[in-house]
Simulated scan of single mutants.
Amino acid sequence: MALLKIFVGTMYGGSLDVAEQVQPLFEQAGYTVEVLDQPTLTDLTETRPDLALFVTSTTGSGDVPGNLTGFLNTLSTESPALDWLRYGMIALGDSSYGETYCGAGRHLDERLADLGATRHGERLEIDAMETFMADDAALPWVEAWIPTLPATA
């Protein structure tokens, strides 16, 4: 089976809830799924996933949640070649913050692309001002995203 790793950046658990809600959809599609709520770069590079999904909220004024800070810092300091990585991005934010809306997801997305990774499809940005439960937006997005992925066999 193909391996999917879901990398979670969360402050209050909303992103982790999204990851846990979408996990069964990937399992039904034939993936072995690991949800990582304290991700490290080693989690990405030692046992390379066939696909990665990043689910992150944004804190403060566009900041990365504390549990994802080390991962992003290591991406920046080590700058590993990620030309082999295919990934998806779900960014949670609050549009009342203006330009920093979904800042963590946008910043991580940009950094992954700079390192050669390829995002599959569009980034999903979930606005807390419009969607109370983030999984209400994430589940349909993942259901539509999975059929566009290359075969898992």
Rank of each mutant, 00 (worst) to 15 (best):
A2Q: 09
L3C: 04
L4W: 06
L4F: 04
L4M: 14
V8C: 06
G9A: 07
T10L: 06
M11K: 12
G13P: 13
L16D: 01
L16I: 09
V18Q: 05
V18G: 00
A19G: 08
A29C: 06
E34R: 14
V35Q: 12
V35E: 09
V35T: 13
L36V: 08
Q38A: 07
Q38N: 15
P39W: 07
P39C: 02
T40G: 07
T42S: 12
T42M: 10
L44A: 08
R48P: 00
R48K: 14
D50W: 04
A52R: 01
T56K: 05
T56I: 06
T56E: 09
S57M: 06
G62N: 09
G62S: 13
D63W: 05
P65L: 05
G66Q: 11
G66P: 01
G70E: 13
F71A: 08
F71R: 09
L72W: 13
T74P: 03
T74V: 14
P80F: 05
P80H: 02
D83Y: 02
W84R: 00
L85P: 01
L85R: 00
R86E: 12
Y87K: 11
L92R: 10
L92M: 04
G93Y: 06
D94V: 05
D94C: 07
S96T: 10
C102V: 12
C102Q: 05
R106W: 03
H107W: 10
L108P: 01
E110L: 11
E110M: 13
L112Y: 13
A113I: 02
D114I: 08
D114A: 13
G116W: 01
G116V: 01
T118M: 09
R119T: 13
R119L: 01
L124F: 14
I126W: 06
I126M: 06
A128V: 04
T131R: 04
A134D: 03
A138Q: 00
L139I: 15
L139M: 14
P140I: 10
V142I: 15
E143P: 05
W145Q: 12
P147A: 05
T148Q: 14
T148M: 15
P150D: 12
A153F: 14
